[in-house]
Design a protein around this nucleic acid. Sequence first.
DNA 1: TCTACGTATCGTAATATTGCGATATAAAAT
DNA 2: ATTTTATATCGCAATATTACGATACGTAGA
Lengths: 109, 109
Amino acid sequence: MGLTKTEIFTQEQNELSTLLKAIAHPARIAILQQIISANACICGDLVEELGLAQATISQHLKELKNAGIIQGTIDGVKVCYCIEPKTWALLQKLFGDFMGSYSDPKDCC
Amino acid sequence: MGLTKTEIFTQEQNELSTLLKAIAHPARIAILQQIISANACICGDLVEELGLAQATISQHLKELKNAGIIQGTIDGVKVCYCIEPKTWALLQKLFGDFMGSYSDPKDCC
DNA sequence: TCTACGTATCGTAATATTGCGATATAAAAT
DNA sequence: ATTTTATATCGCAATATTACGATACGTAGA
């Protein structure tokens, strides 16, 4: 099959898993860290920073953009990418709620 | 290829992405939520709760266990699963640091 | 011991992901 | 107009994921 049964789950579960899946790759984590640390958003310097081919970086950027985590603005020949604050905040809330719902019970198995 | 170039990235980037990947599936999020809400750790009631086959649930549990996020204790015929507090705390730290490193600059593209 | 129960594993089909070379596209510079 | 530069897309090969039926395994009770 290879097809996730999204209709079985709640919208929140699907939403959170989609956002996490977009981030759950070392290259995309590295890309996001670069975008964040460059404050002003960087462009395709990423190809130089990371050791991956241009086509690969472009594809990762596309996935992050599709998930709504970053936003790209065309600036002449270059494209300027930066964090999408709304999605970032949503992810922080969804994940925070999820992680925060657990507290060590001390009396488990 | 289909092979992530882990050797290109830092240990933290790889570690965080591995943990996130383990969680980044609606079924596994649902499983974790069940384990948490049942306080005392539940077993294979999960098969009834979620609408997935037993083999599928077992496989998801294995992945969560491999990532170190949950722990299983054999209890007679059943197996009792619960959150692994150490990994949970590690994930909270890694992800918190990552997410927290961003603050809306207001002067981006 | 035999059977029932709960879980794990195997095998398989469908689909998704990862990475990259080659090529297309589009704006800027010459 | 042509070339350069930056990025996106296509096509492909290798591998990973998802889901599940079938079956194996191990414990508990009859």
